[in-house]
């Protein structure tokens, strides 16, 4: 009897949880849905004083007060129009964003993990000072150094190249990656790799077989932060990206000077495509993020 009642209670809780989460998801998704709808509106529908959010066939649309609009692909085809004064279309910018974002993320996480392992496991002369130095590279606002970096890049021919922005974002993200990864690696018991060392493995083998799998969660978290930072960066991309390596934020800014006003459907279509890779990435690393940190030892 009491078992049946507790089952009912469990069922009720499940429903309540479902309703709350579904409600929250609904609210959270409204802006994204609006973005998607805007991308298939005509420019006039986006600036209308009446909110128009019901896609409809032409015959159903009646009067200025209507909430319906006629879907059009103009926003999406607009992505193929090059920016004024440049041959590059949105897809060129998106490709640059993908190359630069992913490469700099992989580089920052890889270097950060190895560096953090060193700081975590070895007695390094002045170790704490080095760590503080690494952190201090982030103290200055990045744009304060844009001029010297530009001069350096012009001298070495790195302006307008993917490699240039990859290097820059890697360096900017590295301090974050080292500090985040050090925290995660400190949590992995030393006995894990020491046991492997005694059991006949070299330190490198122990690092790859024991530490890296244990550090997965930390690497996934670090990668998300690094990718978002590189993905959204605007100032350096504008100054150093030039024609060849400008990223999507530069493309968005470029639309502002349009003589016929900001083409909102095109902006929305670009935004949908700009957000998608981040969502895909977050879903891919989700399992690593949610993986519990449990260790096969009796002490934590």
């Amino acid at each position: 009897m009491s078992a049946a009642r507790s089952w009912d209670e469990r069922g009720a809780w499940r429903w309540l949880r479902f309703v709350v989460l579904a409600g929250y998801a609904g609210i959270a998704l409204v802006p994204l849905l609006w973005l998607a709808l805007t991308s298939i509106k005509a420019a006039t529908d986006t600036t209308s004083t009446t909110a128009r959010f019901i896609p409809a066939a032409e015959s159903a649309v009646s009067g200025a007060a209507s909430h319906s609009f006629v879907p059009t692909a103009a926003g999406w085809t607009g992505l193929h129009t090059p920016l004024p004064g440049s041959p590059a279309t949105f897809l060129d910018f998106l490709l640059s964003s993908l190359i630069i974002g992913l490469a700099s993320t992989v580089a920052a996480v890889a270097l950060g993990t190895v560096t953090a392992y060193g700081f975590s496991r070895f007695r390094i002369a002045g170790g704490k000072d080095w760590l503080f130095f690494i952190l201090s590279t982030r103290f200055m606002p990045p744009l304060a150094v844009v001029a010297p970096v530009l001069l350096m890049y012009q001298q070495s021919g790195l302006t307008g190249t993917h490699l240039g922005l990859i290097l820059l974002y890697t360096v900017f993200n590295l301090s974050l990656a080292v500090w985040l990864m050090k925290g995660f690696i400190d949590e992995i018991p030393r006995a894990f790799e020491e046991s492997a060392l005694v059991d006949g493995y070299t330190r490198t083998q122990a690092f790859f077989r024991i530490i890296l799998p244990q550090a997965r969660t930390g690497m996934a978290v670090t990668a998300v932060f690094c990718l978002i930072a590189a993905w959204n960066e605007y100032g350096f991309a504008l100054v150093l990206g030039g024609q060849g390596a400008a990223t999507v934020p530069v493309w968005f800014a470029g639309l502002q000077g349009n003589i016929s006003g900001v083409p909102w459907p095109v902006v929305a279509a670009g935004a949908v495509l700009f957000v998608t890779p981040l969502v895909v990435f977050a879903v891919l690393v989700r399992n690593h993020l949610l993986r519990g940190m449990t260790f096969g030892t009796v002490k934590g």
Partner: peptide, 26 residues
């Protein structure tokens, strides 16, 4: 000598079994 070359077995106080691995894999 490095630890691997010594051919000794060290059992740690907190056991240090690898999590997520089966007993067999350990």
């Amino acid at each position: 000598w490095n630890p691997a070359a010594r051919d000794v077995a060290l059992m740690f106080q907190d056991f240090a079994l690898y999590p997520d691995w089966t007993v067999r894999r350990n």
